[in-house]
Design a protein around this nucleic acid. Structure first.
Length: 473
RNA sequence: CGGGCUGUGGCGCAGCUUGGUUAGCGCGCUUGACUGGGGGUCAAGAGGUCCCGGGUUCAAAUCCCGGCAGCCCGACCA
């Protein structure tokens, strides 16, 4: 896989190339022992994450939740209270057994998720129906000692937001879980990142340990494999019962609360890379581009330097994130390739030859298209181009996904279509042990939805829902 | 825990089958010159316990024995 790339180099996780690791993130190994798949996010990659984080945080607040912060360490006994929860997480816990030079009386678990600690506080904080709904979110890092870590997609430690809410009724809890799914998650993925996604809920087999229903957004990466972009769980009263989280209702009797939890992670950065990347590097929607425009000085020259600086100022005044690259001690070719790899949506190249005619070159990254633009027209050109990028990336990714999605009627057809993309098939058509048999072909049911793609409701018969079948990361 | 595979300058690798000059190559790095409109050219240079231990041999990166470490595939999963 040489320079310029022959095959898809960033659209498949297996092929995250070294240059990409130099730009966005790097997997690191523990000093001793097996690789634990921790990750260092480099400044450019972190800049992408920060922009996503700000957007997600804004939407969460719009949905009424407030940020809070809970401890990193959780007493082991908390995890053990909810049977399914402990069974689901026990194999992947990092456990602290010593502190202050002594063995601890009770081991502490490094949080894999915070349902249990937060519930220990909910049970104290929630007394009356007037305290409900309680809507909290925290930005935190969590640790899951997974068997097989993958850069961005499944790292041992990762950053996320986890929302935790308590409601008076099951209907309220469900409505809120769905509101998060739609207004925060689906909208962020589609409208903000330009990645098409399918929404639905998980089968019992794929459900979050401790939940009664797990909602999800499933997207297709550039190699046809599926990636879960987020989850929004209805927890029922499972945690309320073990933590005794009760409230006095309007009639004065005690009820258990109904709860939700939901999360979105740094995995999204990986998803962005794999959904939009091409053989020449990243392609970033302007919304998540740390620099939306880079103004390049082609060659050391007084007039060029002046023109570049004034273009920068003009574009910044127009509200764009602009970076000036006047490092003329590095060759122009090298610098332009570096910005291309980083996925900067628009490059404005100022060189003496064009400038003599009053022009600059504007390069549109995602189309790999360049044109000569008069100085006075740069501002308008950049503005209209930036406005198009996200929509065009979304259209491209949607066309790709649709071309790789097939509605089918039998198990065999589902295996065939699911192996290269998504197969949509009636769950009942897969047979009683359909999921086990799919697993033998490395396939899973990514989500369930109605035949028209809508979310299922309480009245739907599960066997009549459509299963989206695919390979997953 | 099963099934494959690999350890050689900073990174990626060739050499090992069939032992034999001074262990090579690409990328990166340093210096200089020419350059500069797409990871440019030329020249000079720095950088090596060939994973570790033992054995065979006149001679081991190469063959034999024993360790150690890591990677990939499956089970886990945001």
């Amino acid at each position: 896989m040489g320079k310029g790339g022959a095959s898809s180099i960033v659209t498949r996780e297996e092929d995250f190339p070294r240059w990409y690791q130099e730009v966005v993130a790097r997997a690191e190994m523990a000093e001793n022992g097996p690789a634990r798949g921790t990750m260092v996010i480099r400044p450019w990659g972190y800049g992408i994450w920060e922009l996503m984080q700000a957007e997600i945080d804004r939407r969460i607040k719009e949905a009424g939740a407030e940020n809070a912060y809970f401890p990193l360490f959780i007493p082991e006994s908390y995890l053990k209270l909810e049977a399914e929860h402990v069974e689901g997480f026990a194999p992947e816990l990092a456990v602290v057994t010593h502190g202050g030079g002594k063995e601890l009386e009770e081991p502490l678990v490094v949080r894999p998720t915070s349902e249990t600690v937060i519930n220990s506080f909910f049970s104290k904080w929630i007394q009356s129906h007037r305290d409900l709904p309680m809507l909290l979110n925290q930005w935190a890092n969590v640790v899951r000692w997974e068997m097989r870590p993958r850069l961005f997609l499944r790292t041992t430690e990762f950053l996320w937001q986890e929302g935790h809410t308590a409601h008076a009724t099951e209907e309220d809890a469900r409505a809120y879980a769905l509101r998060i799914l739609e207004d925060v998650y689906r909208s962020t993925v589609v409208d903000f990142l330009g990645i098409p996604t399918l929404t639905g809920h998980k089968t019992a087999r794929e459900r979050f340990p401790g939940a009664i229903c797990s909602w999800t957004c499933e997207s297709m990466m550039g190699d046809g494999k599926a990636l879960q972009m987020c989850t929004s769980h209805e927890l029922g009263q499972n945690f309320a019962k073990v933590f005794d989280t009760t409230y006095a209702n309007a009639q004065g009797t005690l009820d258990y609360v109904w709860q939700t939890s939901w999360g979105m992670t740094t995995r999204l950065v990986g998803a962005l890379v794999m959904a939009h990347g091409d053989d020449f590097g990243l392609r970033l929607p302007p919304a998540v581009a740390p620099a939306q425009v880079v103004v390049l000085v082609v060659k050391e020259d007084a007039a060029v330097g002046e023109a570049a600086a004034s273009l920068c100022a003009e574009l910044r005044a127009a509200g764009h994130r602009v970076r000036l690259d006047d490092r003329t001690d590095t060759s122009f070719g090298r610098r332009s390739v570096a910005w291309e790899l980083k996925g900067v949506p628009v490059r404005v190249e100022v060189g003496p030859r064009d400038l003599a005619e009053g022009n600059v070159t504007v390069v549109v990254r995602h189309r790999r298209e360049k044109k000569s633009v008069p100085l006075a027209g740069v501002r308008a050109e950049v503005a209209t181009t930036l406005a198009d990028v996200s929509r065009e990336l979304l259209a491209e990714a949607t066309a790709f996904r649709d071309a790789r999605t097939a509605d089918v009627g039998t198990f065999e057809e589902a295996v065939e279509a699911g192996s290269v993309g998504f197969a949509r098939v009636r769950l009942g058509a897969l047979g009683p042990d359909g999921e086990d048999r799919l697993a033998q072909h490395a396939l899973t049911v990514r989500c369930l939805q109605r035949p028209d793609g809508a979310l299922a409701g309480p009245g739907d018969a599960e066997q009549d829902l459509f299963a989206v079948v695919g390979r997953s990361y």
